[in-house]
Design a protein around this nucleic acid. Structure first.
Lengths: 341, 341
DNA sequence: TTGAAAGCGCTAACAC
DNA sequence: GTGTTAGCGCTTTCAA
């Protein structure tokens, strides 16, 4: 490893001068500057991040922490982060916890927030994400929350209007003549599960549709349960059977569609299906019709969060940044308009 | 930030003792140990990574550097990295350069290799990846190459038998009665492009099939060119038209299939198509038949590389690790057996 | 403008 | 077993 000391020795100046040249922090005689620069170049000097971080208490890096980085769900979000990273001087590093691991996520957050990065972008809406956020908040460490927030504490966060998204999806179906609209819900300890379900109830109530008790069913294990729940809905007699099934997310919806098709139902001819997330990538090689879905602007969120956090870290913005992103309906092939034909 | 010094003060011992307790490095009186542990816990102490890295010259972290982390191509690879990370004590961080950016990739490699991580896993087969590898090698920094190597220098690397993969794909088609087998090639400055093409030529030659000059065409821009190239092949008179088109990768193949279907050809009835990578996720919402492809064991490679690098860093393995991973044919829906029916 | 020296938070060698 | 001390590579006072 080539150090500043070595450069100092070889160019006959003090290490302080080398530092001044390399960081451009104070004026240095042009000839010295040149000499130092040249020696540094020849030796292939790269500053030691740890040493610099220790004394400056700045690392010039931003950390992004998620669960399941491999999940195609993150496609647009990561693209946004990457694009944001191109626009800033901060180095951006990603850390991923497997499954719904809290231990590992906590470990990464602690690791990053103590001398590795200057700020963290934490993606997730599990209950433990809020706990991690509280920890960062208590430590006064700069961070940005995506899809979560801390009750009673104002923090930088980007939220998505999950409730409004499902609410508008119900209206979308209603406007196309659907009245018996079922919902397949997720009951993880994630705020977005509750928010989405709430949007469903609110819309159904406002539209004066039947109280949806028997039209809401919860996933037990994972998204594959969409299959058996759909099977259940399809077992209803035709006059009670839902004409549309709204799903917590697209993965669930994909299994609902699979089931319907397997049972000889036509989607959307016989039954419509909607999802959430507008994922281009569905699990297990789904090849059915493209799923009409509630889309969230993940690219923008990724991009904006990197840029906003950069601004905060540079001190360019002092205020707490909060934003609620709106969703839109991505019209695809799984919803029929019952008012036509 | 709570430091070791503060803990020392509050628990009435020296900071050396605190360090000993916290790192479990040497015996400490049980009561002192307990006192220190308790104070540390109460204060929410987390060791400063930078300080520790500086003195130990170890960070206990591994860096993974790729281009386009968002690319669904990485699905299995990232899953492998994540699973590997769960099996080791090292923290794993990912860095991503956009597009075919060399600047940013170099910046990340330099950043990581100077005080942020103990070892790097570099994925990529661009020419500049080799240059980056040379840099790391010159700096004697521990690293692992996936899909690339340095000419004349023995380094830790995992390679995939790209040539053999395409070679066996040609045989696979041959065994199913195909004789006019075309190839859509990529001509990026990537070693895998050359390797795959070589496998095609070798197989065609060994099988005594027509010299494939007019059966090989190169992509100009990106994978979408698969469409126009397929269009070209389809314009041949039936007796000269390829019965199978082998593609550099699945993204290209997906556009080749699109084209064939658009032009009213049946895949694989009228023309067979094969890809490479066995991607579950194809670009732009591809919905055609599942593409028969040459599959590489990306999950294993990701997993193994983390574990192998961990072992190297812990000094458990001294030898240079080199491995050539074999591919296999993933049979899907785009190849017809012309010897049947 | 430059150099000497202190110190960021931590570990490790050395003494006791 | 424990405290004292030096020092990792760098930046930043403070003098000169």
């Amino acid at each position: 490893m080539v150090t500043i000391k070595e450069i100092a020795r070889q160019s006959g100046v003090s290490s302080a001068t080398v530092s001044r040249v390399l960081t451009n922090s104070r004026p240095v005689q042009p000839e010295l500057r040149e000499r130092v620069t040249e020696v540094a170049r020849q030796l292939g000097y790269v500053p030691n991040t740890a040493a610099r971080a220790l004394v400056k208490r700045r690392t010039n890096a931003i950390g992004v922490v998620v669960n399941n980085l491999h999940d195609p769900f993150f496609y647009d979000l990561i693209r946004g982060f990457e694009a944001g990273a191109m626009q800033t001087d901060f180095n951006v590093v990603f850390c991923s916890a497997m499954g719904r691991e809290i231990q590992q996520k906590q470990r990464y957050v602690r690791y990053l927030s103590n001398g590795v990065v200057d700020g963290i972008i934490l993606y997730g809406s599990y209950d433990f994400d809020e706990a991690l956020a509280r920890e960062l908040h208590a430590a006064k460490f700069p961070f940005f929350l995506i899809e979560s927030s801390i009750d009673g504490v104002k923090t930088n966060n980007f939220l998505i209007d999950n409730e409004g998204g499902v609410y508008s999806a119900v209206h979308y179906l209603y406007n196309r003549g659907h009245r018996r609209i079922a919902y397949i819900a997720e009951k993880l300890a994630k705020r977005i599960c509750a928010e989405r379900l709430k949007g469903y109830y609110r819309a159904m109530q406002e539209l004066g549709l039947d109280l949806p008790e028997k039209q809401v069913r919860y996933i037990e294990e994972d998204y594959r349960d969409g299959y058996s729940i759909m099977e259940h809905f399809l077992s209803y007699p035709p006059e009670q059977r839902p004409t549309a099934v709204l799903c917590y997310d697209d993965a669930v919806a994909s299994y609902a569609v699979r089931c319907a098709m397997d049972k000889g139902f036509c989607v959307p001819g016989d039954i419509s299906v909607m999802g959430f997330d507008n994922q281009t990538v569905l699990p297990d090689g789904y090849q059915g019709p493209a799923i009409t879905s509630v889309a969230q602007p993940l690219y923008e969120i990724g991009f904006d969060s990197i840029l906003s956090l950069s601004q905060i870290l540079r001190g360019e913005r002092k205020e707490t940044i909060t934003k609620l992103y709106q969703t839109h309906i991505a019209e695809k092939e799984t919803v029929a308009d019952r008012k036509k034909g």
